[in-house]
């Protein structure tokens, strides 16, 4: 599969210019187009009936699907690294009920022409949601295969029009101890922060994610909106995003701050580089197997997305920029 990444899709191709004024306008444009294409059913998903329950999403099937066995939903939603809700990976499934995902806004700010605060429903319905089956590789040597529902982050970036000086994009997760029982025990200084280089953020694989398994994200998975960057370790895919900032310098990121030698800014999946706690050459694939014995798979360079993303790092020493 060939994906061009050098040149961003011009925003004009995405939304008509006069619809740029606000995000609501963008949504109207999509509604109109959805009607024209005869996929009116998609409109039904526009207005979710309840905020917190897992709602079925109307999705179109995406192009970027791996053929690996998909991890059962029950596993993907009961094994979550989400320290704000508990350190043990089984905890968030029990404690994340206290997260309120509506009302919710995402603030876009920094080096961008159209800074704004976007309502979650408008954001979710700005583009048709694609279902993409991605590999998800945690730095702790386990991996899953999950169908995520969302659209390329590049669509949002183009909509808000970053300034030429914007070189990086920063995401902040919610940090509210009234909703996140373990926020103070998370070990994080303030809100969880992650970042991408602009070309990484613009890469079509980078998914602004609202759902999984055809439903809105479970709270413990990062509801209501997160980013999924499938060729990087899991912690590069921040959850419960409330702020997106465009900046000119490489931002600090949560895990890099905690342990720089182990968790670099790039954190591309790389079986040749060693981790601090285990080798990264293989992982336990957590899929539909009902055996207590692990399914061991060889970890692939860029998590198997090398064809698409290796060119982003041409000429870079990956052991230095890890």
């Amino acid at each position: 599969m060939l994906i061009r990444t050098e040149k961003a899709i011009p925003s004009s191709e995405i939304t008509a210019k006069d619809n740029y004024q606000s995000f609501r306008a963008g949504r109207r444009a999509f509604l109109a187009r959805a009607g024209m294409l005869g996929v009116g059913a998609a409109a039904a998903a526009m207005f979710p009936s309840a905020a917190n329950a897992l709602n079925k999403l109307q999705t179109v099937s995406g192009k970027f699907n791996v053929s690996d066995t998909v991890t059962p939903e029950s596993k993907a939603q009961s094994y979550n690294n989400y320290y704000e809700f508990g350190i043990d990976k089984s905890e968030p499934a029990h404690t994340a009920g206290s997260l309120r995902t509506r009302p919710w806004t995402v603030k876009v700010e920094g080096l961008v022409k159209k800074p704004q605060t976007i309502d979650i429903d408008a954001l979710m319905h700005y583009r048709p949601l694609e279902q993409r089956v991605y590999r998800f590789r945690c730095v702790e040597a386990w991996s899953m295969v999950i169908p995520w529902d969302g659209y390329s982050l590049s669509e949002l970036i183009n909509f808000v029009e970053p300034l030429p000086s914007a070189k990086y994009i920063v995401f902040n997760s919610l940090a509210d101890s009234s909703q996140m029982p373990n926020l103070n025990g998370s070990g994080f200084e303030g809100a969880y922060q992650e970042g991408l280089r602009m070309d990484e953020a613009m890469h079509p694989l980078t998914l602004l994610t609202f759902g999984s398994y055809g439903e809105t994200l479970a709270n413990q998975q990062g509801a209501p909106v997160r980013v999924i960057v499938p060729w990087k370790y899991g912690y590069k895919s921040p959850k419960a995003i409330v702020k997106i900032r465009f900046v000119d310098k490489q931002p600090s990121t949560t895990w890099n701050d905690l342990n720089p030698p182990a968790y670099g800014f790039y954190s591309n999946v790389n079986p040749n580089l060693d981790g601090d706690h285990s080798s990264r050459s293989h992982d336990r694939r957590l899929d539909s197997s009902s055996s207590i014995f692990p399914k061991i798979v060889a970890t692939q360079m860029f998590n198997g997305y090398g064809d698409q993303v290796a060119s982003l790092y041409n000429g870079m020493d990956l052991s230095k920029y890890y």
Binding site: K75, S78, Y79, K89, L286, S290, I292
Partner: peptide
């Protein structure tokens, strides 16, 4: 847990054990 399947039903039995 092994016999009644609770162990295999863990998302990551190895981590648990």
């Amino acid at each position: 847990m092994y016999r009644n399947g609770a162990l295999a039903a863990q998302a990551d039995p190895v981590n648990f054990i």
